[in-house]
Simulated scan of single mutants.
Amino acid sequence: MESLLTVAELGLSLLLIVFWGFISVVVVEAWRRRHSNVPVETVTTLEDPTSLKQVPCPHISDPADKYLSLIVPAFNEEQRLPAALEETMDYLQGRASRDKNFSYEVVIVDDGSVDGTKRVAFDFVRKYTVDNIRFIPLGRIKGKEKL
Rank of each mutant, 00 (worst) to 15 (best):
D62G: 04
G112M: 03
K100P: 14
D131N: 06
D65Q: 11
V114M: 05
F75S: 05
V107E: 03
F75D: 01
R80C: 08
L14D: 06
N101H: 14
W20F: 15
Q79V: 13
D99K: 13
N132M: 03
L5F: 07
E105N: 15
I141P: 01
V130K: 09
I141H: 06
E78R: 09
R95E: 15
I71R: 12
N76Q: 13
L16R: 00
V55Q: 10
T45I: 06
L70P: 02
H59C: 11
E9Y: 15
V27L: 06
F122M: 01
S13Y: 07
Y67N: 13
A8K: 15
K142P: 01
M89I: 10
G112D: 04
E86P: 00
L5H: 05
L5W: 07
L15S: 15
W20V: 13
D123I: 00
Q79I: 10
G143T: 02
A8C: 11
F122K: 00
D62Q: 13
Y104C: 03
S24C: 12
H35K: 14
P56W: 04
T88K: 08
A74I: 13
T50G: 15
L81F: 06
E9F: 15
L14G: 09
T129Y: 06
R32G: 02
D48M: 07
F124K: 00
M1F: 13
P39Q: 03
F19N: 10
Y128S: 05
H59P: 01
V130G: 02
R119K: 09
I71W: 12
G21A: 11
R80S: 14
A84Y: 13
S61W: 15
S24M: 08
E87M: 14
D111V: 04
T6P: 00
L52E: 11
I23S: 03
P49D: 10
V38S: 09
I141Y: 05
W31P: 00
E105A: 14
S97K: 14
P73W: 12
V18H: 01
W31I: 14
G143M: 01
A64W: 15
S113M: 08
H59F: 13
R98V: 00
L68Q: 04
N132S: 08
L138S: 00
E77Q: 07
G116H: 09
V25P: 00
D99Y: 12
K142H: 12
V120K: 04
F135H: 02
P63H: 12
